[in-house]
């Protein structure tokens, strides 16, 4: 029994590394992205084997799903907006390739040697977390770490997401509307069928997050998939008048999280120190609002540019703000 699992682990490990190499060396960019998506899913599978189902879920949904969609959307853009004098990539000489591979191998060996010498399997936070679980307000250890013990990190992580969407809106200001992806009738029908189901799954993930694998980030990613489908199927088209609401939705999670962290100091507590009797409620409230923000933000990151006013959009084909 043990032996078959070891063989499975070894095969999976080899597949993961091979896919990583392939996604770096395949000439066709589309194929490279597809290989990357398979790589991400197999990595998530490996993480399930390492008893980390929540992380595997997050990696599959956000690290692979949303990232893959972002990559494909960008590839689509790059291929649609054709460049006349696109520079041909120079063929890499064999010697350079061998040197790269050798460097890569040496690096792996060096790091692996240091890794092998480290005491794996503790000492970690196992006992500390187990002791503090009863006063954390939630039943699932990972959720307790994310939203209570290390809530400050998680707040800053949502801040990173906020910084990303502000930066993306800023970068793509005034960009023309042309390469917005449209997928046609089949996708529209598909979207109508699947949207309600995805909403249910996302909400469910959020709810079970306090006691089982799942939570704000996975739930947010699943709900973001709804946004992606809405955008792709043109069931929802962002308009300039929606910008105000979008801005509020982006900051909602961060704002509520930070406000709660400060407001609890009213009772003579530390920032982020939720009163025990309200801890579960507060954490669920934060998780819910953060989920909404994550979903809207991820969908906006996929859409890219800020929806600009129509007359401005009709005035040219991009680059107007290039002064």
């Amino acid at each position: 029994m043990i032996d078959t699992m070891v063989i499975f682990d070894l095969l999976l490990a080899v597949a993961v590394v091979a896919l990583a190499v392939a996604s770096m060396t395949t000439r066709d960019m589309f194929a490279a992205i597809v290989l990357f998506v398979v790589f991400g899913l197999l990595s998530a599978l490996a993480w399930v084997r390492l008893s980390a189902p929540d992380v595997a879920l997050a990696e599959a949904a956000i690290g692979t799903g949303v990232t893959g969609a972002l990559l494909l959307r960008t590839l689509h853009h790059v291929q649609t907006v054709e460049r006349k004098a696109a520079p041909e990539p120079l063929p890499v000489p064999m010697g350079v390739q061998i040197a790269n591979a050798a460097f890569c191998g040496l690096l792996t060996l060096g790091l692996a040697a240091a890794f092998a010498g480290a005491p794996r399997g503790g000492p970690g936070f196992d006992l500390l977390v187990a002791d503090a679980m009863s006063i954390s307000g939630v039943d699932h250890p990972v959720t307790a770490v994310l939203l209570n013990f290390r809530a400050y990190d998680t707040l800053m992580e949502v801040v990173v997401l906020l910084a990303a969407v502000i930066a993306v809106w800023q970068i793509e200001r005034g960009l023309s509307d042309a390469p917005a992806p449209a997928l046609g009738e089949v996708w529209q029908g598909f979207a109508r069928l699947t949207l309600p189901a995805i909403v249910v799954v996302g909400t469910y993930l959020l709810w079970v997050g306090s006691s089982a694998p799942g939570g704000a980030f996975q739930g947010g990613a699943v709900l973001a998939a709804v946004g992606l489908l809405l955008l792709l199927s043109r069931l929802y088209v962002p308009r300039p008048s929606h910008r105000g609401a979008a801005r509020v939705a982006f900051v909602l999670g961060t704002g509520a999280f930070a406000a709660v962290a400060l407001l609890v100091t009213g009772g003579g507590r530390m920032p982020f120190e939720y009163p025990l009797e309200h801890a579960k409620t507060l954490i669920l409230l934060i998780e819910g609002l953060v989920t909404i923000s994550i979903a809207v933000t991820l969908a906006a990151l996929f859409h890219g540019r800020e929806p600009v006013a129509l007359p401005e959009r009709a005035a040219g084909t991009g680059g107007r703000d290039d002064a």
Binding site: F125, A261, F272, Y274
Partner: peptide
């Protein structure tokens, strides 16, 4: 923060 002392 959160009243939790490091290392937790």
């Amino acid at each position: 923060l959160g009243g939790w002392e490091p290392p937790l």
